[in-house]
Design a protein around this nucleic acid. Structure first.
Ligand SMILES: [Zn+2]
Ligand SMILES: [Zn+2]
Ligand SMILES: [Zn+2]
Ligand SMILES: [Zn+2]
Length: 595
DNA sequence: TACAACGTTTAT
DNA sequence: ATAAACGTTGTA
């Protein structure tokens, strides 16, 4: 009703059949209210400059990710009820927030079609080959730390190991950064802020469905965070958490990772997408009658089990977390970083670019700390997952650039761009189809992921133009540099970076970091155990299905909630499954700075 | 060009 | 810390 009224606020009463308006808007006629935020107009120059530098600062151009269009969330329609939907003009809102529906937060955001390799300037070419390994080497991988997007095989040092992040398609810690020990930046990783399945989600806890009367789960959760039902709890809960955290903190220290958590894998992935997530405040209105109905039917079954399971896991985890923490480092497989797989690159010889890549070695020498890891890394091909803890592995990643960085580059000719597009990624429609197929197939056989591979498109690979570095990163502050320089620069950056760590950056970076970052996730461990390959290699877009699958619960879209918490992430993460996702960038940040 | 929406920036 | 706002990017 509200919407209707709003829509007709400006109707001319004279046009009414009766000749007279029946309803009146409370005295104020609709007025477009002034922007809440006043804009400093003058700022243009300084502000902008700052922004630019900040955002892109170090690494290359950051690219924001976009929705995969294949996951459950992407396939859903807007709920019209969440906070963001309500903001949309189509639902009668002002349209100021410009965020996607909470129920539609993509769980596997992909690199934009326009993304290209920093080294060769070409897009991902995984579609041109069959072999997994090859696919991996030809697909674009975005480093969660330095944000660079490259073809693994375009890296100079071929032998180095990158750490593949299972949580996000085409995301890894490049060899350079991996070896370096992530010193530097740790920014927010890629991924969407509100995607419940991702670590840094800003979503608050999920509202459990308590509709049915029983509501099995809520009660049980001891951990404060989880308990949702009431909004009020928050403070209390929070406190609790913190305490724990602190206590924990003392113990831990170096990084280590956490023990294997639960295995989500098995979870039959309940797909309940319906899970309404809700934020504390109100992503959704308080009432959800409608949803409830739905849920009941479908969810009933799954739900209970699911929830219960989840809870159990959580609990369990808590328990061991504490104890296990220390051990973690070496895990059976060797790595234990959550969500990450080490991938070894084979050696190639090309020596294309510059330098970026070789640092790994140097780094090793340098960081003593890393040793453990490095050893592990050395093992060739371990794809196991690693459990990362927040510390290191957490993903941070590249940020996409939101608003700010313009400076980039000159663009490519439109034609080129276009070409690129065509060749790469499927259109939505196609994607949709694909997804369906995949989903069907995949359902059961996890192992096959590869086989399934999706449709291949003909990929004419063309080369895209060697772009310049759009990145610009380079450009901006610096002066005009050429690619080469850029490369060099980058390399330097890295090195220095490590030393310094943060670059001179601006505050922004850090701040940013906090917000979104996500630590890698947890679950993987079990999975790792169970399976093996996961999707290390081909994560490309196409394999979303697998990817999702392997992610377990979250994948389906069920958004999980997180309490967000903040700060302390890491520790917290150990405790709750959900939490772990969000490890803290913050922590890292502080760490970094300290260093 | 229009529209969706990401990720940072501001305001509270 | 959390939520609102917004510039800019990505897609069609
Ligand atoms: Zn919605
Ligand atoms: Zn998606
Ligand atoms: Zn390349
Ligand atoms: Zn990197």
């Amino acid at each position: 009703m509200k919407v209707v009224l709003k829509e007709h606020t400006d109707d001319d009463p004279k046009l009414a059949i009766s000749g007279a308006p029946v309803v009146f808007w409370a005295k104020k006629t609709a007025k477009p209210r002034p922007p809440n935020r006043v804009k400093p107009k003058m700022a243009a120059s300084p502000a902008s400059a700052v922004k630019l530098s900040a955002s892109r600062g170090t690494s290359g151009a950051r690219r924001r990710r976009t929705r995969c269009r294949k996951c459950e969330a992407c396939l859903r329609t807007e709920c019209g009820e969440c906070h963001f939907c309500k903001d949309m003009k189509k639902f009668g809102g002002p349209g100021r927030m410009k965020q996607s529906c909470i129920m539609r937060q993509c769980i596997a955001p992909v690199l934009p079609h326009t993304a290209v390799c920093l080294v060769c300037g070409e897009a991902g070419k995984e579609d041109t080959v069959e072999d997994e390994e090859e696919k991996f080497n030809l697909m674009l991988m975005e480093c969660s730390i330095c944000n660079e997007i490259v073809h693994p095989h375009c890296l100079k040092v071929k032998d180095s190991n990158g750490l593949v992040n299972d949580e996000l398609p085409n995301c890894w810690e490049c060899p350079k950064c991996n070896h370096a020990g992530k010193t530097g930046k740790q920014k927010r990783g890629p991924g969407f802020k509100y995607a419940s399945n991702l670590p840094g989600s800003l979503l608050k806890e999920p509202r459990l469905i308590r509709d049915s009367k029983e509501e099995p789960e809520p009660a049980t959760v001891p951990t404060a965070a989880a308990v949702p039902g009431l909004t009020t709890t928050a403070s209390a809960v929070k406190r609790k958490v913190e305490q724990e955290v602190t206590s924990k903190r003392s113990e831990e220290e170096p990084p280590k990772k956490r023990p294997p958590l639960l295995s989500l894998d098995a979870m039959s992935r309940p797909r309940l997408e319906d899970n309404p997530l809700r934020k504390k405040r109100k992503l959704f209105e308080t009432n959800d009658e409608p949803m409830i109905v739905k849920k009941k039917k479908k969810l009933c079954k799954p739900d209970d089990p699911f929830s219960a399971k989840l809870l159990r896991h959580i609990t369990a985890e808590n328990d061991h977390d504490e104890e296990n923490e220390e051990q973690v480092d070496h895990e059976e497989d060797g790595l234990s970083l959550d969500g990450m797989h080490f991938k070894e690159k084979k050696k190639y010889d090309g020596e294309v670019q510059d330098d970026n890549l070789e640092q790994g070695e140097m780094v090793k020498k340098r960081d003593g700390v890393l040793e453990d890891k490095s050893k592990v890394l050395l093992n060739p091909l371990l794809r196991t997952c690693a459990a990362t803890d927040g510390d290191h592995l957490s993903l941070n990643s590249p940020r996409a650039g939101p608003s700010g960085e313009p400076g980039d580059a000159p663009e490519k000719s439109p034609a080129q761009l276009k070409a690129r597009h065509q060749r790469r990624r499927l259109s939505n429609k196609e994607a949709g189809k694909e997804s369906n197929q995949e989903s069907v197939k995949m359902e059961d056989a996890p192992s096959q992921k590869l086989a399934i591979v999706k449709i291949e498109e003909s990929s004419p690979n063309y080369n895209r133009r060697p772009l310049k570095n759009e990145d610009s990163v380079v450009n901006q502050n610096c002066k005009p540099i050429k690619t080469e320089d850029a490369a060099t620069k980058r390399a330097l950056k890295l090195e220095d970076g490590r030393a310094n760590l943060n670059r001179p950056q601006l505050k922004m970076e850090e701040s940013l970091t906090n917000q979104n970052h996500r630590p890698v996730k947890p679950k993987t461990e079990n999975e790792a155990d169970n399976q093996k390959p996961r999707w290390p290699l081909n994560n490309g877009n196409s394999d979303l299905g697998d990817w999702l699958r392997h992610r377990g619960l979250e994948a389906n879209g069920t958004p999980r909630g997180f309490s967000h918490s903040a700060g302390t992430g890491v520790r917290r993460s150990r405790r709750y499954v959900t939490d772990r996702y969000r490890a803290g960038r913050r922590r890292n940040a502080s760490k970094w700075s300290a260093t």
